[in-house]
Amino acid sequence: MSGNLASEADRLAVLIDADNASAAIADGLLAEVAKYGVASVKRIYGDWTDNRLGSWKECLLRNSIQPIQQFGYTKGKNATDSAMIIDAMDLLYTRRFDGFCIVSSDSDFTRLASRIREDGLQVYGFGERKTPQPFVVACHKFIYTELLIMAEAEGVAEIPGKSKAGNELRQDTRLLRLLRSSVEAVSDEDGWAQLGPVGSHIAKQAPDFDVREYGFSKLSGLVSATELFDVTQRTLANNKSATYIRDKRKK
């Protein structure tokens, strides 16, 4: 996948806030995590005596996710957050992981994400579109769970008929700014930029950028659809093929 932030061999700790995540995302979540590494630890936190979490129980068995019991000591107070944060720090100090996946829409995990990043580890956030922006930008990559549910329901990463047309994409000023500034940042003297580094640079600017928002499964498809970039394939020194793009205004 172009622009991936980590190696497939990276060891990841997946921590799920059951109070702030739907069981409907379980399969899509783990499939997404697999793009970034191996889920060496999979834990989910909540009060499992609460019937509201019943939909998670089958998912836990099927996906080998370890439930962590956390009673709500005081009504209206969420004890799950504290338990997740304490466990995350314990796992961080083991130095056995390359990254963390924090699954929640709660801004309380903003500082945790920042702290993990301070140790040089990758942080992948997963939450609903309502997730506060401070938590989103504290992560290296943030994936909206609505996209995971949609892809799971359709059974494909790129949904036929949902891809946005070129004229619609060209009206999206945020998209064009991200694409053009990233190409400019990693391009050579002739304006050509390899697509992989372009994707990585976009992620640095906008952790929640996701080509699936526009109906595409790959960045190359989105770039081509804008019709604003020249696209070509080149053979590298290792005989592998790579996609290069250039802003058409550079001609």
Rank of each mutant, 00 (worst) to 15 (best):
residue 3 G to Y: 06
residue 7 S to M: 03
residue 8 E to W: 15
residue 11 R to V: 05
residue 16 I to L: 07
residue 18 A to Y: 00
residue 18 A to I: 00
residue 20 N to D: 08
residue 22 S to A: 07
residue 29 L to N: 07
residue 30 L to R: 03
residue 33 V to N: 04
residue 35 K to G: 14
residue 38 V to P: 02
residue 38 V to L: 13
residue 39 A to T: 00
residue 41 V to T: 12
residue 43 R to F: 10
residue 45 Y to F: 13
residue 48 W to F: 14
residue 52 R to C: 10
residue 53 L to V: 08
residue 58 E to P: 12
residue 64 S to W: 12
residue 64 S to R: 14
residue 66 Q to E: 14
residue 68 I to N: 13
residue 74 T to S: 15
residue 75 K to Y: 13
residue 78 N to Y: 07
residue 78 N to R: 05
residue 79 A to M: 13
residue 80 T to D: 07
residue 82 S to V: 13
residue 94 T to H: 07
residue 97 F to I: 04
residue 103 V to D: 06
residue 103 V to N: 02
residue 104 S to F: 11
residue 111 R to P: 00
residue 115 R to Y: 08
residue 116 I to E: 01
residue 123 V to A: 10
residue 124 Y to H: 14
residue 129 R to K: 13
residue 130 K to R: 15
residue 131 T to E: 06
residue 132 P to Y: 11
residue 134 P to E: 01
residue 134 P to L: 02
residue 140 H to F: 03
residue 140 H to P: 04
residue 142 F to M: 02
residue 143 I to L: 02
residue 144 Y to D: 14
residue 145 T to D: 07
residue 146 E to M: 09
residue 149 I to L: 07
residue 151 A to N: 04
residue 152 E to W: 01
residue 155 G to R: 01
residue 156 V to I: 10
residue 157 A to I: 09
residue 159 I to Q: 00
residue 160 P to Y: 01
residue 169 L to K: 08
residue 170 R to S: 11
residue 171 Q to P: 11
residue 176 L to K: 06
residue 177 R to F: 11
residue 177 R to E: 15
residue 179 L to N: 02
residue 179 L to Q: 00
residue 185 A to I: 04
residue 185 A to T: 05
residue 186 V to K: 06
residue 187 S to Q: 14
residue 195 L to M: 10
residue 203 A to K: 03
residue 204 K to Y: 09
residue 205 Q to C: 06
residue 207 P to C: 00
residue 214 Y to M: 01
residue 216 F to H: 05
residue 218 K to M: 14
residue 221 G to Y: 02
residue 224 S to G: 08
residue 225 A to Q: 13
residue 225 A to Y: 04
residue 228 L to Q: 12
residue 230 D to I: 03
residue 232 T to W: 07
residue 233 Q to H: 11
residue 234 R to F: 08
residue 236 L to D: 12
residue 236 L to W: 11
residue 239 N to Q: 14
residue 241 S to N: 15
residue 245 I to C: 09
residue 246 R to N: 08
residue 249 R to Q: 15
residue 249 R to I: 10
residue 249 R to S: 15
residue 250 K to N: 10
